[in-house]
């Protein structure tokens, strides 16, 4: 499903090049649940960006469903994300000018679905927000916004879902709800889940944990 081969990434910094990721190798199968943990600055977010095709690696390859993401242009990667990738962000990243339901509809509409509205409504009901579809993000609490984000992430039934600190901005109760939703949908749809987090309790839910430090994998363990 997802393969990392000798993945490395560097940023220009003060005229020199700063390696933030070095020689990352791993492979995920369909339906896997991986947690990537590590201290701040260890390269977690950079790795997530590369795995999701948001950026191009400096070295090595990321193969998503057999496709080398680095070989694709920006718009080709966007089209790939449209059909195969879902996201959940720490800061929810809902589009403030669209209602909750419209936010959920966006990926489906991008993929050309004609029944986006009905499906969005059903997904919102599934995350417990059936009655709030017409509300704007600013009219929802943080937990509700993240539930909308979860509904959006699963709307196209992506093959793989990337979650960046999904509970980072939530209180414990709301965090639990969101995690529960993510894991149950993961099981229901057979979606591969990649989670980046500081939260070791949350990471413990994953079936596999990769620990990063200074841009290299220091441990890779299965639960």
């Amino acid at each position: 499903m997802l393969t990392c081969e000798a993945l490395g990434h560097a940023y220009p910094s003060g005229g020199a090049s700063l390696d933030v990721l070095k020689d990352i190798n791993f492979h995920l199968e369909d339906g896997d649940f991986l947690a990537i943990v590590g201290p701040s600055g260890s390269g977690k977010t950079t790795l997530l960006g590369l795995l999701a095709g948001l950026d191009r690696p400096s070295h090595g390859r990321v193969l998503l469903d057999g496709v080398d993401l680095g070989a694709l242009g920006e718009d080709e990667r966007a089209k790939l994300r449209r059909t195969k990738v879902g996201f959940i962000f720490q800061s929810f990243q809902l589009i403030p000018t669209l209602t909750a339901q419209e936010n959920v509809q966006v990926p489906m509409e991008l993929a050309g679905a004609d029944d986006a509205a009905e499906r969005a409504e059903a997904l919102l009901t599934r995350v417990g927000l059936g009655a709030r579809g017409h509300h704007y993000p600013s009219q929802l609490s943080g937990g509700e916004q993240q539930r909308v984000a979860v509904a959006r992430a699963f709307s196209t039934r992506p093959k793989i879902l990337f979650a960046d600190e999904p509970t980072g901005n939530l209180d414990a109760a709301n965090g639990d709800t969101v995690v529960e939703l993510m894991t149950s949908l993961n099981e229901e749809f057979g979606t591969t889940l990649v989670l980046v987090t500081h939260d070791l309790e949350l990471a413990a839910l994953a079936r596999r944990t990769i620990r990063l430090a200074d841009g290299v994998i220091v441990s890779d363990s299965a639960a």
Binding site: D75, A78, V85, I95, V106, P107, L110
Partner: peptide
Amino acid sequence: LDSIAVLRCLGATSGQ
């Protein structure tokens, strides 16, 4: 900027 980045993430092309 944020909304555009999200749309890009969700698969919208720069042309769209």
